[in-house]
Every structure is written in C-alpha cells, then in structure tokens.
C-alpha cells in the first residue's frame, strides 16, 4: 500500500496470508466495538464528535453489513454490538519477539 493511501474498509477476506494483504474491517478488525469507539472519537473527519450515538450505531451497522457480517435488517445498540463475532477475532497473537534468529 502506498504511504498515506486511504484505508479500504470493505473486502479483503482471505487475503491475509497472501503477499497482497488487504486489512479491512471485515478481514482484519478484532472487535465491532472498536468501530463504534473509533467513529465516536474521530468521525466525521472534518467535524469529529458531532454524530449522535444512534447515527454512530447506524454507521457501524452499515459498515458491518457491507462486509457481510450482519444482515440489512440488523439493529445495533449497546447490548447487541458487543455480541457480534468479527471474522478475524482469533487472528492475533501476543508479541512473541525476539522472533528473528
């Protein structure tokens, strides 16, 4: 990926073992709650923290739906969001370094 290229948000599932890994919400993110937290902190980029919680849940739901993780009629809130199982939930390992002989 070129330096400072904008992140791709959708797709990339199955690419993480290739030499062209595409790290998206659907292929890489561990937790759906991280998405809510990030959107709440910094979006929209030119007016951070101006969205209501309902608007943020709606955005999270749309992004997860685009990634095939929830269906179109899913309603997200503080109770349902933490229950979502992300595809790459088990894709991380604690720092094992030193790893290079």
């Amino acid at each position: 990926m070129p330096r400072n290229a904008l992140d791709v948000l959708v797709g990339g599932q199955g690419s993480s073992r290739t030499s062209k890994a595409l790290k998206t919400i659907g292929s890489y993110w561990l937790y759906a709650t991280t998405l809510y937290d990030y959107l709440r902190r910094v979006m929209p980029f030119n007016a951070p923290q101006s969205l209501t919680p309902d608007e943020i849940y709606a955005l999270v739901a749309w992004l997860l739906q685009q990634n095939g993780i929830v269906t179109e009629d899913t309603v997200l809130d503080a109770r349902s969001l933490p229950r979502i199982e992300m595809p790459n939930r088990n894709g991380f390992t604690p720092d094992p370094r030193p790893d290079v002989p």
Binding site: S16, R17, A21, K23, I25, Y28, W29, L30, Y31, T33, T34, D37, Y38, G91, F92, T93, P94, D95, P96, R97, P98
Partner: peptide, 27 residues
C-alpha cells in the same frame, strides 16, 4: 481497551495470517 490503534493499526501481520499485537518495544 482495544482501540483502533492497537487492533486495526500498529499490529504486525505475519505470513501465516496471524498478527502480532502489543508489539510495543522498538527493537
């Protein structure tokens, strides 16, 4: 707390598809 900056970013994807997380020290 699993913020974006320690999950989606600043994690190191390995050839087997797993990523190092909280690899905080600079070697």
């Amino acid at each position: 707390f699993m913020t974006r900056w320690e999950t989606a970013k600043y994690t190191d994807l390995m050839p087997d598809g797993k990523a190092y997380q909280f690899s905080l020290v600079m070697d």
